[in-house]
């Protein structure tokens, strides 16, 4: 594949996230601007942090003058799920030379999921992994554009976009369906275990605290099951 085809492949793969990031980014920009910050801050935060829910959470923290250690702790808690994403791409990213740090930096929920779905494409293994880089760049470009436009012209977006955030839920649902279809019984059982653990912890610990224990328990249980299967 030539450079152009790689880019076109990445662009095609990036479209599902485009609408969601533009609108969610705009929503973020609007909230940021309503809190008295200018578009420069939308640009700075979306370029430097690039983590949707944490960027939203940071606004009230900054407004109330939370201490820097508090902000650090909040970030580590809210974004703890990102600890697990790299495990799936250790080898792929390592082979990407100068692009390696950016790939790590830009590994959001959405980019992680879309990269997992890319990996199921038959042409992926033979492909120059520069396509992953294009994809990651495009995703961040959508996010940055959305948030800056939202901060600049939020009030001009007159139509009611309530519910557009469902496109991110739909994205994860679609990728999960693909994973299950391609991954056979192994994928089905690990997703089933993960979902059962997630629901258990959701009801036990509540919506704000269930994520990290769920991910840790999922890795633990899958690891134990793998050991048992290998032993027997």
């Amino acid at each position: 594949m030539g450079k152009k085809q790689l880019f076109l492949y990445a662009f095609r793969k990036s479209i599902p996230v485009m609408l969601g990031f533009l609108f969610l980014g705009a929503a973020y920009g609007i909230v940021l601007q309503a809190g008295g910050l200018t578009w420069i801050w939308a640009l700075y935060t979306s370029l430097a942090i690039y983590a949707g829910s944490m960027q939203f959470a940071l606004l009230p923290l900054m407004a109330s003058g939370a201490s820097l250690p508090t902000i650090a702790l909040m970030t580590l808690m809210v974004n703890s799920r990102h600890l697990f994403y790299g495990l799936s791409f250790l080898d792929v990213f390592r082979g990407m030379g100068a692009r390696y740090p950016y790939m790590i930096f830009s590994l959001t929920d959405e980019t992680y999921s879309v990269l997992c779905s890319c990996r199921q494409d038959p042409e992926f293994s033979a492909m120059d992994h520069r396509a992953c880089w294009y994809l990651a760049l495009l995703h961040q470009l959508y996010w940055v554009t959305g948030s800056v436009v939202g901060a600049l012209a939020g009030e001009l977006l007159a139509f009611d976009t309530t519910g557009i955030d469902f496109s991110m839920t739909a994205l994860f649902v679609v990728i999960l369906v693909d994973q299950l279809k391609a991954g056979g019984r192994d994928a089905l059982s690990s997703a089933g275990i993960a979902m059962a653990l997630a629901l258990t912890f959701l009801f036990l610990l509540g919506a704000e605290r269930f994520l990290l224990p769920t991910l840790a328990a999922t890795v633990l249980v899958l690891g134990i099951l793998q050991t048992i299967r290998k032993g027997g």
Partner: peptide
């Protein structure tokens, strides 16, 4: 081997997260 099983599991958790 474990990491190979993670995508389906993590994305399932993300669905519940949403």
């Amino acid at each position: 081997d474990l990491a190979a099983k993670l995508p389906a599991a993590i994305i399932a958790v993300l669905v519940v997260y949403c």
